[in-house]
Design a protein around this nucleic acid. Structure first.
Lengths: 112, 112
DNA sequence: TTTCATTATCGTATATTTGCGATATAAGAT
DNA sequence: ATCTTATATCGCAAATATACGATAATGAAA
C-alpha cells in the first residue's frame, strides 16, 4: 500500500514539484542548455552532445515535452525542438516566489 | 546494464539536478514552506501538517537534509530543523543563471 | 528505574525512473 | 519501389523512490 499519493497536495505544489522533477536529471539540464545555445531549433544533434543512447535521449526529450518545458515539431524523421518560454517564465516566477518566502526566514535560522 | 550514469555529467549539472530532485516532491515543498512560516525552528509539528505517516515524513526530511537544504539538530527525542539559507542562496543563483540562459533564446523560438 | 513521547531506522511492497537494444515509422533520396 | 536516415516506441532489466507499519533509540518525566 504505497505509491504516489501526490494528488493530496495542492495543485500549486504539485506543479512546482513536477517542474523540478522534469529538470532533476543532468541529461535534461544539458538538453535545455543545448537548446538555449542554438539560436534556431535543432533536431537530434542533441543526441551527439550526450553520452547516452539515442533512445534514452528521446525519452528524456519526451519528458521535457510532457512537462511543457520544450515544444516540438515532430514532422517526419526530422524533429525540431525548442524551449517553451512561457513555461520557463511561469515557473521562474513561482520558483522565485518560493525562494523569497524561504529567504524571509534568513535572519531567524537557529540550527545552522 | 542500466542504472544511474549520472557521474558522467559535469559537477555543476549534477548539483543543480540534485537540488531540483530534492524539491521535486510536493511533500518536501510543503516541509520547506512550514519551516519558512515558523520563525523559530520547529520539531515534528511538520508531521501534523502533512497527510503522511511519521516515518514517511522523516524520510522526506532526511532527503532535504542530505541535500543540504535544511539543517537539523537531532538532540534526543526532540529534533529541530530549519532552512539552510546558504544552500538556498547558492542554488537560487545557479538556477537563476540557468533560467537567464534560457531566457536569452526567447525571441528566437521557432516551434512554439 | 520505569514510563512516555518523539523521532529515526528497518523491512517490505509497489511504483517509477533510467538505460539499452531492437524494432517500427516516416519522409526524403536514389 | 527500395534504400537511407532520423526519430519514436516497445520490451526488458536494474536501480531508485514512495509509502507504511513495526521497531529501536533517546531524552524527559514520573
Amino acid at each position: 500500500m504505497a505509491f504516489h499519493k501526490k494528488e493530496i497536495f495542492s495543485q500549486k505544489e504539485q506543479n512546482l514539484a513536477q517542474f523540478a522533477k522534469a529538470i532533476s536529471h543532468p541529461a535534461r539540464i544539458v538538453i535545455l542548455k543545448v537548446l538555449a545555445k542554438q539560436k534556431e531549433c535543432i533536431c537530434g544533434d542533441i543526441v551527439e552532445q550526450l553520452p547516452l543512447a539515442q533512445s534514452t535521449v528521446s525519452q528524456h526529450i519526451s519528458e521535457l515535452l510532457s512537462a511543457g518545458i520544450i515544444n516540438g515539431t515532430i514532422d517526419g524523421p526530422r524533429s525540431c525542438y525548442c524551449i517553451n518560454w512561457k513555461t520557463i517564465q511561469k515557473f521562474s516566477n513561482e520558483f522565485g516566489f518560493l525562494l523569497n518566502k524561504l529567504k524571509a526566514t534568513h535572519e531567524k535560522t537557529c540550527c545552522s
